[in-house]
Design a protein around this nucleic acid. Structure first.
Ligand code: MN
Ligand code: MN
Ligand code: MN
Ligand code: MN
Lengths: 217, 217
DNA sequence: TTCATAATTTAGATAAGTCTAAATTTTTTA
DNA sequence: TAAAAAATTTAGACTTATCTAAATTATGAA
């Protein structure tokens, strides 16, 4: 089928496509920790396989075939993360790297049975929607805290950054999925945000954190 | 750590070492569906890493370090097979190829938690013993049917061949794990064996099948 | 519009793992 | 025990996925 490297490129292009249109060589290189020249080589290969639309110097987008593969990898990633947290009792900050390996296990029947075994979960441990076996899923309607205004309130429902360090920080601040918060103040100077939790505790978070913490209204 | 190719070579050498002493280049090539020259290249690399004892033209054996890695791969293989059958409800003839991929997932904590999740199973779906997290396990005391004599009886407890075709054949003959059988006759001419099952049904199996079907006495 | 800078691609190398064909060593057989 | 056969290794090549350094193309500031 496709090599591990090809799968990782497709997944990276998919993720980068969400907030941009065409994805640039340098963006891909940064997200995969590789060099632009390596990316160019791979883009030629993926274009030959008709998995991406590629014109020299113009960046790339996924073809429907490429998108299908990418979504399937993401489905596997999120289902394995859910398995690791719900069945094997890992913390949400421990599972991403393991899922990076497990998402490449090829069997479709395996992943469909895993989905059934876990009773078709809709969201992974980081609040991301899990595509079904046909690749369909609802686009996230979550908003970053940084887009809200004073007095807005909502429930923490997702994160944009999956790094252990960020998730551990949230854990320590008790800013975990399901917690209800309201915006008390947005500091003009540095765009940091002061929140209030259900039990009236005030938490001051940086702009960076506010950008990566997602709320359902 | 070790590459996927290295892990597969170590596992192959481990399995081939069980009934021979030193393992030959050609044996490894046959078991991995590769060419003898490729094997030689890899043997040099594994010897450099001190995972095998290798002298040109003399075959190889695992060092303790190599054996430890091999047993760990086998532990992962068998635990994933058990998971696929017990939790995801696959048949015993469907799981080997998936486990060949899953055995390379690296996290030790993951496999230890999987072991715990399944309550420390002792045998995989083919009757093979599962090493514990320290690599310890009881050597199988099972005997091939071909080593028994007339009137011996016992319980089917394992298989030597894990191919789908063999397992499906056994399934059709209802020669599955746990079934009690006794030897009715051993045909002089072709060493085929006539068995009797608990419900008095007679089954005639070839020498080949008798070699690959294991009994606990 | 022009030129400096940034982005991207090309050229040429490297490492892992594999292959075929040829050479070497071991084993078997006569 | 010497030649033939089998097993194994070496030589040289190929593929995939990388890299660095150099060349090319695009962009945006003057
Ligand atoms: Mn993840
Ligand atoms: Mn996730
Ligand atoms: Mn198996
Ligand atoms: Mn097995």
């Amino acid at each position: 089928m496709n090599t591990l490297a090809e799968e990782n490129y497709l997944k990276s292009i998919y993720h980068l496509s969400i907030d941009a249109g065409n994805v640039s060589t340098n963006q891909i290189a940064a997200s995969l920790n590789t060099k632009a020249s390596s990316v160019t080589d791979m883009l030629k290969k993926l274009a030959d396989k008709a998995l991406i639309n590629y014109t020299r110097y113009q960046g790339v987008s996924l073809t429907p075939a490429g998108e299908k593969i990418a979504v399937n990898i993401i489905r596997k990633h999120r289902l394995w993360e859910y398995f690791l947290v719900e069945k094997l009792k890992f913390k949400w900050d421990q599972v991403h790297d393991m899922a990076e390996e497990m998402e490449h296990i090829s069997s479709a029947e395996l992943i469909d049975r895993l989905d059934e075994f876990m009773d078709y979960p809709q969201h992974d441990p980081h609040g991301e929607p899990i595509p079904d076996c046909n690749g369909r899923f609802n686009a996230s309607e979550l908003k970053a805290i940084s887009t809200l205004s004073v007095n807005n309130c909502g429930t923490i429902a997702g994160v944009r950054d999956h790094s252990s360090s960020f998730l551990q920080y949230l854990e320590k601040q008790q800013l975990t999925l399901g917690k209800k918060i309201s915006i008390t103040e947005i500091v003009e100077f540095d765009h940091s945000v002061i929140l209030q939790t259900e039990n009236k505790k005030e938490i001051h978070i940086s702009r960076e954190v506010a950008n990566n913490l997602l709320i359902a209204l």
